[in-house]
């Protein structure tokens, strides 16, 4: 019996480990719809209390930067060292700075 390839869409799963933390990508899964994706994600990625909140997003809804153009894409930040606090020389004896 042959079935259509990947008959269920791919979802990416993000889990908030505990209150106060960001959701972090943990992996992916296939599910027929959003609701089932959420339930499958619970069973697959939080069997040991790994999370307090889950996001699921259809993989094709994600827009990603391409690794090939990594250098030019991130270049605008490369030469702006003045955005970092360590760029500025302040005498040691100035308090609270």
């Amino acid at each position: 019996m042959t079935e259509p390839r990947s008959s269920w869409p791919l979802y990416e799963v993000f889990v908030r480990g505990k209150r106060g933390l960001n959701h972090v990508h943990v992996g992916s899964l296939h599910a027929p719809d959003d609701e089932m994706a959420l339930r499958n994600a619970r069973d697959l990625y939080t069997r040991r209390n790994e999370g307090v909140s889950i996001w699921v997003v259809k993989a094709d809804a994600i827009t990603a930067s391409s690794p090939d153009e990594k250098d030019p894409f991130f270049a605008p930040a490369g030469d702006k060292v003045y955005r970092h606090p360590t760029f500025y020389a302040i005498p040691e004896d100035v308090p609270h700075l």
Binding site: E3, R5, G27, S28
Partner: peptide, 23 residues
């Protein structure tokens, strides 16, 4: 149940390489 989970983590990893779980 964990073994099933491990299988799914790994199938998901193959799919990032262009494989298809069904296949």
């Amino acid at each position: 149940q964990d073994e099933a989970g491990h299988g799914l983590y790994l199938y998901a990893a193959t799919e990032t390489l262009g494989a298809d779980r069904e296949d």
